[in-house]
Structures are given as structure tokens and as C-alpha cells.
């Protein structure tokens, strides 16, 4: 399916011309696109948020994954953070990373999640959104606005590059999820539409070239920890953008670069489990063990 190319820069300019907060502008776009009312779209986003919140709770219980390679790390990080006055990441980032790990682990254990944009990268947005909710006192309607901004960013990436690991490597999955979360975060913290674009550009630049190399082909190793990595990149990019730092390469061009990097990536590094971590001695040993079961 080939899609007409969308432009984040165009949307940013349009939002500024109409003097609309970016979340409101994106909601308006979706009303036109879906022929649903803004209340209906917001309600559906709130329903997705409820599923995300449940998946965080499920993952924090430490379920064991289907392949047996992951589970329990979200709880470990949460307990460690809660037992210390001071942590390297601080309260906000510590929570965001723990929640992202939780959703990744719930997903690997066949729990219910929201693919956002994919199942493999489903931890990033809930991690950021629910840490924001708790640490910045946001309500569910505000979070729904953040999710709509994230969705709009995802549409631009889907139209110019890809959201699938099989097509673009992990940069397309966790990289896109990180970019969507960074943009949502900037919008929710009162950043301008232009700053949303900067956060998206900086996140993708820092995750460009990330390969998809799952051990035994499962959505477990390294996928769960890569969700945590994407959260960290999103936070770094959002904070830089809010401080007024800009990307030298414009956002749409950065997305196009991700597409061309994905195209030139060898197929052994695009979800085939034929390269990278999947073919390390340990990766191969685990693959053999799992397939013998």
C-alpha cells in the first residue's frame, strides 16, 4: 500500500497560522479524516489509555514471557527507584522507563496492549504518558490530546518511511514510537508546534540505523529493553526542544533519511532473526533451546 506523503512541517505551519495548540489542530485533522466528532475521537483515545494503564499494572506484576526470555525487570526497576532517595534517572524518567518495560513485558507474556504504533514498541507511549500524568498532574483528557499528537506524527512517518521492523528495522518501530512520544510530551508540557517538530527530528536522528534483530524471532530480546531506550531518547529530545534547541536537518528530511537508511539496511537486520544479537553464540543457543521445547 503506498500512501500520499504527509508533511509534519506543513501541519506545524498550518497550526501556527491558525494559532491553535498542536493537539487541537491534530484533533481537527482527525475529525476531517474519520468523520467522527472530536468527542468521539477523544473518547476512543481515552479507552486506549485505559488499556495502556492496565497493561502497565499487569507488567509490574512480573509475568513470565511466552519464550521465557523476559519478565520481572519492570518490577525490579520500580522497587530499586522507590527504595532510593536519589536515582540517576530521577523520578520522572525512572517511572517512564519502568512503565515502558512493564508494557513490553506484559506484551511478551500475551497480555492485552495497544499497538502504538506496533506491539513490539507498545511500551514507549504508555511509559511517557503515565509518568507525565503522575508527575505533572495531567488528566485523562489531556493525555488523550497527547495520544492524538502522537498518532498524527505516526501518520507522517508511516507515509514517508515505515513503522514496521520488517521494512525499516527497529528505528521504524522503537524509533517511531520514541518520536511520537517526544512530540506528545512537548505538546503536553506547553511547547509550541514548532518545538513538537524539533523533538520528533532529534529523537529520530538519535535512533537512526537501529536494527531489528530479535533472538529466536520473538518480541522479547532485545525488544523490551529497546522500549526503555526509546523512552530515554524521547525525554532527551523533548527537553532539548523545550529549551529551544533546534535540529539542523528539518523534521520531514530526517524522516526521509530514516526511510533511506531502512532501505539500505541488510535484510538480516530487519526482523528475520538472521543477524545482530539473534546470531550471537548466546542468541543461537537460546534459539535452539526454545525450538526444542
Amino acid at each position: 500500500m503506498s500512501l500520499a506523503k504527509l508533511s509534519l512541517a506543513e501541519w506545524i505551519t498550518a497550526a501556527e497560522a491558525e494559532a491553535l495548540p498542536f493537539a487541537e489542530f491534530c484533533l481537527g485533522l482527525q475529525v476531517k479524516q474519520t468523520e467522527l466528532s472530536s468527542a468521539e475521537i477523544t473518547a476512543r483515545m481515552e479507552a486506549m489509555l485505559a488499556v495502556m494503564e492496565e497493561s502497565i499494572a499487569a507488567g509490574l506484576k512480573g509475568p513470565r514471557s511466552k519464550g521465557g526470555l523476559v519478565g520481572g525487570d519492570a518490577r525490579k526497576l520500580q522497587q530499586y527507584s522507590q527504595s532510593r532517595q536519589k536515582t540517576l534517572m530521577g523520578r520522572f524518567s525512572g517511572k517512564a522507563v519502568a512503565y515502558a518495560l512493564a508494557v513490553g513485558e506484559a506484551n511478551a507474556a500475551m497480555g492485552r496492549i495497544v499497538a502504538a504504533p506496533t506491539a513490539g514498541s507498545s511500551g514507549v507511549l504508555p511509559g511517557i504518558l503515565f509518568a507525565l500524568k503522575e508527575e505533572y498532574d495531567l488528566d485523562q483528557i489531556q493525555l488523550a490530546g497527547g495520544l492524538i499528537v502522537a498518532g498524527a506524527i505516526g501518520m507522517v512517518i508511516a507515509s514517508r518511511a515505515s513503522l514496521a521492523g520488517a521494512a525499516g528495522g527497529c528505528q521504524a518501530e522503537c524509533g517511531s514510537a520514541g518520536a511520537m512520544a517526544a512530540g506528545a510530551m512537548v505538546a503536553l508540557l506547553g511547547g509550541t508546534a514548532a518545538q513538537v517538530g524539533q523533538a520528533v527530528a532529534i529523537t529520530i536522528k538519535n535512533m537512526l540505523g537501529l536494527v531489528c534483530d530479535p533472538v529466536a524471532g520473538l518480541v522479547e530480546v532485545p525488544c523490551v529493553k529497546r522500549n526503555a531506550g526509546a523512552v530515554a531518547q524521547a525525554i532527551i529530545a523533548a527537553e532539548m526542544a523545550l529549551a529551544g534547541i533546534t535540529s539542523v536537518i528539518p523534521v520531514d528530511e530526517v524522516i526521509d533519511a530514516m526511510e533511506s537508511v531502512g532501505r539500505s539496511m541488510h535484510c538480516s537486520l530487519k526482523e528475520t532473526a538472521q543477524g545482530g544479537l539473534a546470531v550471537t553464540p548466546t542468541g543461537l543457543e537460546l534459539t535452539e533451546k526454545i525450538s526444542a521445547r
Partner: peptide, 13 residues
């Protein structure tokens, strides 16, 4: 549209 990006709600992985 946005529901192609955010969603589906599904059981993993």
C-alpha cells in the same frame, strides 16, 4: 487515520 497508528487493542506479543 489515527486508529491505524494507535491500535489495535490486542493480546501480545
Amino acid at each position: 487515520n489515527i486508529f491505524d497508528i494507535i491500535g489495535p487493542v490486542m493480546v501480545g506479543p
